Amino acid sequence: MTGEDRRRKLEEEHGMRFDYSFSSGFIPDLEKLSTRISFTALNNATESFDEHNLIGFGKKGKLYKAKLPYYDCLAAVKRFYNSRCLVKQCFSELMILGKFKHINIVPLLGFCIESTERLLVYKYMPNGNLYDWLHPMNNETKILDFHLRIKIAIGVARGLVWLHHNNFLIIHGNLCSSCILLDRNFEPKISNFGGAMFFSKSGSKELRLIQSDVYKYGVLLLELILGQDFYMPKETFKERISHPSTTIDTLYRAVDKSLIGRGNDAKIFSLLDIARGCVKPLPDERPTMLQVYKMLMDVKKINNGIEDYSETLTETDTTFTGFSDDNIELEIIEI
């Protein structure tokens, strides 16, 4: 599916027509999705985008920490580089994050479109991203114990279940540890929806796309347990994991040493087995994210030594703006 096809599908599903030039007549439609914030306010909140407020940068733009008036939380302001391609990604994120809300999806606070400026404003996540915790730089000491790792694994899975198994379908398409943000309690928030695809229902083609998210989740789960950076050529990774000589025992020998010998070995073996299922070469052999979530909950119960039903999918996990009945519980159906 081309970028233009994705744009048309998004526009049709949301009942809007947009021009990527973001003309003034287009702004009221966007204001239905999220709060419009002036560039002057964001400029002041970041102290003129001062470098000491810079908390991240990449191919899309720069991310700044900001304190906005009338908000009871810190914000993270993404200032996109001036590019037509990035304008489309900004639009996609705004459309999806503006309409759909979930505990494991990064909260969008607002947006700014003025002249050539394109900015999105998110709730600030004080513990940064998962990649930096798993691969600290410059001899930093960052430790994620097993409890936090399984909490993060479950939270990301819960978010993907909500995206995949709802009365709509969203394919993230770019899941990785650097786009998993962590709040003060290490609750994970999936971010980076610039390349996401939205569908009102799923067919055979969409189901294949879902399995791509499942595969990437499997890589993420292995990264969580092994502590290794798997962002290598796709075929190289597939060959290593699916090779007949690569057994669970082989993978266990590569487990992050900080997790070994702490009474969690049985749970680690179970997580490795789940991850291997997610990265099977044939997409049809991979589990759905709902199946993965249920397996992770079984592992969590073993970890606690008791039945633990605290991580259930409730109506608060499946709300989105514009839904008429706040009390209705959306049925999660396995595809």
Results as ranks from 00 to 15, higher is better:
residue 140 E to C: 05
residue 248 I to S: 00
residue 129 N to G: 01
residue 203 G to A: 02
residue 230 F to T: 05
residue 16 M to C: 12
residue 262 R to E: 09
residue 47 E to Q: 14
residue 118 R to M: 04
residue 325 D to Q: 14
residue 18 F to R: 07
residue 140 E to D: 10
residue 64 Y to V: 00
residue 250 T to G: 00
residue 87 V to N: 07
residue 297 M to I: 04
residue 81 Y to M: 07
residue 261 G to Y: 02
residue 57 F to T: 10
residue 108 L to E: 02
residue 205 K to F: 10
residue 316 T to N: 13
residue 167 N to K: 12
residue 250 T to A: 08
residue 14 H to M: 15
residue 15 G to A: 04
residue 122 Y to F: 13
residue 215 Y to G: 03
residue 242 S to T: 14
residue 76 A to L: 01
residue 129 N to Y: 03
residue 9 K to A: 11
residue 159 G to E: 03
residue 224 L to C: 06
residue 13 E to A: 15
residue 109 L to I: 06
residue 335 I to E: 15
residue 202 S to F: 07
residue 215 Y to F: 13
residue 33 L to F: 14
residue 211 Q to K: 15
residue 4 E to R: 09
residue 276 R to M: 13
residue 191 S to E: 02
residue 95 M to C: 12
residue 215 Y to H: 10
residue 9 K to N: 13
residue 245 S to Q: 13
residue 276 R to S: 09
residue 321 T to A: 15
residue 286 R to F: 00
residue 69 P to E: 09
residue 284 D to T: 08
residue 331 E to I: 15
residue 164 H to Y: 03
residue 293 Y to N: 03
residue 208 R to M: 12
residue 58 G to Q: 05
residue 193 F to V: 02
residue 249 D to C: 08
residue 331 E to C: 11
residue 317 D to Q: 08
residue 307 E to F: 08
residue 67 K to T: 13
residue 77 V to K: 03
residue 179 C to T: 12
residue 261 G to K: 02
residue 28 P to T: 08
